[in-house]
Structures are given as structure tokens and as C-alpha cells.
Design a protein around this nucleic acid. Structure first.
Lengths: 198, 198
DNA sequence: GTCTATAATGGGATAGAC
DNA sequence: GTCTATCCCATTATAGAC
């Protein structure tokens, strides 16, 4: 049997509210009311509104890093690795667009200390993508001019989903992730050797 | 001689403040003080904080649409057209990252009426990119499975710049726009016909 | 651990003098 | 068209009863 603690109910409520209205525009009253509590009860479980944000953001960052690391380790074929990484990263952002929006858009609302803490995860995500590209280039399968820039651009496709994606819209998470994965492969694949013009 | 009106000074101040802290976290006192005025003076020139946002957002949307339309009309070669459109759109978002951030991130802070008004520009931008892809496919030069999805993804690269780009950072606006333009062409270019495997 | 009540602060917007 | 002063309300967070 799964027990949902008051603390978890508050976190779920915060995710909803922050994703819907943004951190600054969300009131603690709103969070409390979504969790079925009085405003005062919030502070029994969390120190402040920002600490709620940090909890959500940290969980989100952890999850996103886990997704990309798992994808990176799933195969050694450079092309399929890029395809899987981009698919899973974009898919995660669509499937968890509310948390993703908080992770990506409310980064600046964190205290400097908390921002520093989640920045470690962000760098690690970028690094994993860069490594996958570097490895594919070394194996002669990929062709990438600017590895850090391209890695960032591949991640951007997924990140930008959270700006607008809503479940039940005209495009499914799978459809968008597949689109991104296909585009990603075209961006980095070495052109197949063709007969040069005589 | 160029005269800067108080109204314009307020708009500039609002751009700075909204881009730095977000609409909800910006106070009218902050805007007034950046413009060198008292809080009361704001309301002589603008009806409300939201109307300031709308003014900034509308100008930004207009400008972005103009950029992409001009790029689309600059050449008839489908590949160079895509390259130019993506370059100019990404370049604009880097060069105007503050306005771009307001355009892209504060869309939901507009009143429903104002949101409807700027949505026209957003659809027009997407449409222009879709048309460029459709034309390139029709000419047999581009190969695009999902025209609306790909158009959106090409624009996403530029849009996502405003999330983090700061002038004076490690990468210039030109460098990033060139990167995006190069990736864009690879995403949509029809593979050169190569000898099929015997 | 939850409530009601409230403290303390800061918000958007306005009044009225100059 | 700008100011000072202020209204009125919402905000985050806490106190103290149960």
C-alpha cells in the first residue's frame, strides 16, 4: 500500500502551481489549497516557498540526468546512441513537461546556493551528450564541427518542448521525441561516401 | 536629433526588468526607478504593468516576424533560404535576448485578449518557415518528413537561446547563429544521390 | 500536524499638489 | 507631466490553540 505523505502532497501541489503560473506568481495559499491544507501547514513540512521549488527542481534535475545517462549506456553504436539519447531526453520533457518547465524556466528563482547545486547536474547532462558525440566522431561514424554547441542544440530541442507542450495536444510525446531523434541523427551523421563529381 | 520620450524610457526600463527578473517578480517601483521616475509617473504613460508587457511583447513579435519574412524573401534557393532564415532568426534572438525572453517566456502573463493578438504573429512566423520547407521539398532539393514539426524545431533552436544567452559570453551571436544555420541545413537537405549498394 | 488569526512587509494603482 | 503621500489589498511567514 502506498501512503502519500502531506509532504509529498505539497510537492505535487507545488509542481502543478509553479508549472501553471510560474514561481513568482504562485502564492503559498495556492499551493496549500491545492494540497488541501491551510497556508500555515505548509511551513510544517517545508521551510519556505523557495525550498519547495528547490526540492522540485533537484528531483527533476536528478531524473533528467538519469534518463540521459541510461540512454547513453544502452548501446555502443554511436548513431543509435544519439538517437536514443535525444529520443529519451525529449520524451522525458514531454512526459514531464510540468517538472521540466520548473527545471528549465525557474532556474533563476533558486537561491544562489541552490542554483550552484543543480548546476552540477546540468553540466553533467551536457557532458554526457558531448561525450557521445566525441566518441562517434572518433569512431568515424559521426561528423560534428562544434561538439559543445551541437550537444547543446540537441538538448535544446527537448528543453524547448516544455515551453508549450501539453498532454492531449495535437502531437503525442512519442511523435515529438521521434521527430527530434530523427533530426538529431541527420545533424550529426557523416555523409555516406558518394562518388565525387568527375 | 533623437528625442527619447518618457514613454520610451519606461519601455526600455520594462524590457530590462522583465528580462532580468520575469514579469511577475518585477515591481512597478523597479521599472519606475530604472526610468528615473516616481512610481506614479508610470501610470501617466501606461495603463498598467501588463500593458507595458504587452507593448514590449507586441514590438518584439512584430520585429521577429519582420526578420523571418525578410530572410524568406532574400533568395529563391531553398537551401540558402533555410540557412538565412535560421541564421537570422537565431541571430535576432541572441542580439535581442532580453526582448526575446519576454516574447517567449512571458507570453502567458499577457491578458487573454493580448495573447490572442500576439498569437497571430506567432502563427505567421511558423507559417513562413513551413512554406520555405514545403517549397524546397517541391523543388526536390529538401527532404522533410514532417513539415510543421521540422519548422517548429528549426525555430526552437533560436528560441531556446533566450533562456541562457548573454552578450559577452563565451560564444558570439554570430557563432551560434551560424551553428544553428549549419545544423538546419543538414536536417532538411536531401541526401546527395549515392551509388546504392550492389 | 493542523487549524485560525495575525504580524510584518510590499505590492499595484490613485489622489491631489505643483 | 512629475512629484509625495497614501489607499487598499495580497503576500510570506509565524504564534498559539487544539
Amino acid at each position: 500500500m502506498t501512503t502519500i505523505t502531506a509532504r509529498e502532497r505539497l510537492i505535487n501541489a507545488a509542481v502543478e502551481a509553479f508549472a501553471e503560473k510560474g514561481f513568482a506568481a504562485t502564492t503559498t495559499r495556492d499551493i496549500a489549497s491545492r494540497a488541501g491544507m491551510s497556508p500555515a501547514a505548509v511551513y510544517v513540512h517545508h521551510d519556505s516557498k523557495e525550498s519547495l521549488l528547490f526540492t522540485v527542481s533537484l528531483q527533476g534535475h536528478r531524473h533528467a540526468l538519469e534518463i540521459i545517462n541510461t540512454a547513453a549506456a544502452s548501446t555502443t553504436d554511436p548513431v543509435e546512441r544519439i538517437r536514443t539519447m535525444v529520443y529519451d531526453f525529449s520524451r522525458w520533457h514531454a512526459d514531464h513537461s510540468r517538472v521540466g518547465r520548473i527545471v528549465q524556466w525557474e532556474y533563476h528563482a533558486l537561491t544562489p546556493e541552490h542554483r550552484t547545486e543543480v548546476a552540477v547536474f546540468r553540466r553533467s547532462i551536457e557532458r554526457t551528450m558531448q561525450d557521445a558525440l566525441t566518441d562517434g566522431v572518433a569512431q568515424g561514424v559521426l561528423d560534428v564541427d562544434d561538439v559543445p554547441g551541437t550537444a547543446f542544440s540537441l538538448l535544446s530541442l527537448g528543453v524547448d518542448l516544455v515551453r508549450w507542450f501539453e498532454p492531449g495536444g495535437s502531437r503525442s510525446a512519442h511523435e515529438l521525441a521521434s521527430l527530434h531523434a530523427g533530426l538529431a541523427v541527420r545533424m550529426v551523421l557523416r555523409a555516406s561516401p558518394s562518388r565525387p563529381p568527375a
